[in-house]
Each structure stands twice: as structure tokens, then as C-alpha cells.
């Protein structure tokens, strides 16, 4: 555990809490892609199956359970509790275009051809692209509420900090997880354009982020 990794995990936690609290307090999930949230719940579910097979640390176990619980709570709020506010007309990204290549790739490129390893690889690849329905939705509507952009900012920050964590681990413990690093870098690239808009628009006091 290093400071980048810890800060990355905290950013990830903050992002998920921001989204959950926003939906709960506004009693609305307008502007939120339910599809992205289902994909994230799928990411956590397939990655954290090792909860049943290995014990890494109390921190690891607790964080995994918290992420799982919060991602399912988010999906529940969007599709059950506040489903009449769900903006399905603008959440039209075709997730099968993500799932099919990701499933194929996880069978081709993995560390071991075992069910748990293939599912772990699937979760890593899927996480890299899971935000695309949300970014697609923002592009389609041309705007995002500032709280949604704060959520995306912390999610992107988490990815950037994980890259710093991998650089640190590479130099201090010669750790290099090729699958995680390559897809992590790809994932971070998706946030770059958004980061630019966030800094130039949202942080300068706009209530909404309107796309140029």
C-alpha cells in the first residue's frame, strides 16, 4: 500500500458516494446513465469473486464489500426507487458493443485460463470502457449537472492515481500487472477530454457543464 494507491481508492469511494448522495437527496437520477452503473456493478461482481477464495487484508475485504454494496444501491435507486426520473431516452448507448469484445478479449488475453481469472480479466477490461454510456449521454444531451461532473472528476482522478501507484510499485517492488496497467491507461485516456472541460467550465463557476 502506498499513498497513491490509498488516495486512488479514496477518490473512487468519494466518486461513488457523491453519485449515491446526489440521487438520494435530489430524488432523481436525471442525467445519470443507468447502463454505466449496471456495468460498474458487473465489474465489481466479477472482480471481487475472490472474496470467497483468498483473504488479502481487512482493508481489502471491507473496501470490496463497500464498493459492491454501493454499486448495487446505485443501480437500485436508478431502476427501482426513482425509475420514473430515469432518462432512458438519452441512455441509448449499445452496451453489447462493449460486452462482446470485452468478453472475447478476456478469453484471449489472461493470466490463467480459469473461470476466476477470466472473470477478473473481464472486469478489468470492462471497467476501462464502462463509463462510455455516461460520456455518450452527456455528448447526446450536450450538458451535465455540475454534481455529475464532480462524480466523473473523482472517477478520473482515481484512475490517474492508480497509474502513479503502478509507477511507484514498479520502481519499489518490481510489480507490473500488464493487463491492469494497459487497460488502466486506456481508461484514463477516456477522461482526458472531460478533465479539460471540467477545469475550463465547471471550476469557473458554471452550474452546468455545457458542451461547446
Amino acid at each position: 500500500m502506498n499513498v497513491f494507491r490509498l488516495a486512488g481508492d479514496v477518490s473512487h469511494l468519494v466518486a461513488i458516494i457523491i453519485l449515491l448522495v446526489k440521487i438520494w437527496r435530489s430524488k432523481s437520477c436525471a442525467g445519470i446513465s443507468g447502463k454505466s452503473q449496471v456495468l460498474f456493478a458487473l465489474v465489481f461482481t466479477t472482480r471481487y469473486l475472490d472474496l470467497f477464495t483468498v483473504f488479502i487484508s481487512a482493508y481489502n475485504t471491507i473496501m470490496k464489500v463497500v464498493f459492491l454494496a454501493m454499486s448495487y444501491a446505485t443501480v437500485y435507486l436508478i431502476y427501482m426507487r426513482f425509475r420514473n426520473m430515469y432518462d432512458s431516452e438519452n441512455d441509448t448507448f449499445r452496451v453489447e458493443f462493449l460486452l462482446v469484445p470485452v468478453i472475447g478479449l478476456s478469453f484471449l488475453e489472461n493470466y490463467a485460463f480459469t473461470p476466476l481469472e477470466i472473470l477478473w480479466t473481464f472486469s478489468i477490461f470492462l471497467e476501462a470502457v464502462a463509463i462510455m454510456p455516461q460520456l455518450f449521454m452527456i455528448t447526446k444531451t450536450g450538458e451535465a449537472e455540475s454534481i455529475t461532473t464532480h462524480y466523473l472528476f473523482f472517477l478520473g482522478l482515481y484512475r490517474a492515481l492508480y497509474i502513479a501507484n503502478w509507477v511507484w510499485r514498479y520502481h519499489t517492488e518490481e510489480f507490473f500487472d500488464q493487463i491492469a496497467v494497459v487497460s488502466g491507461v486506456v481508461q484514463t485516456i477516456f477522461y482526458c477530454d472531460f478533465f479539460y472541460l471540467y477545469v475550463t467550465r465547471v471550476l469557473r463557476g458554471k452550474a452546468k457543464m455545457i458542451l461547446p
Binding site: 475472490d50 493470466y111 490463467a112 477478473w120 510489480f175 507490473f176 500487472d177 493487463i179
Partner: peptide, 10 residues
């Protein structure tokens, strides 16, 4: 070198 399970990151 390839990383080996268990995966200790979240």
C-alpha cells in the same frame, strides 16, 4: 513478468 493471482488491488 506477468502479475500472478491473488490480485491485491481494488
Amino acid at each position: 513478468e506477468k502479475g500472478e493471482p491473488p490480485h491485491d488491488e481494488l
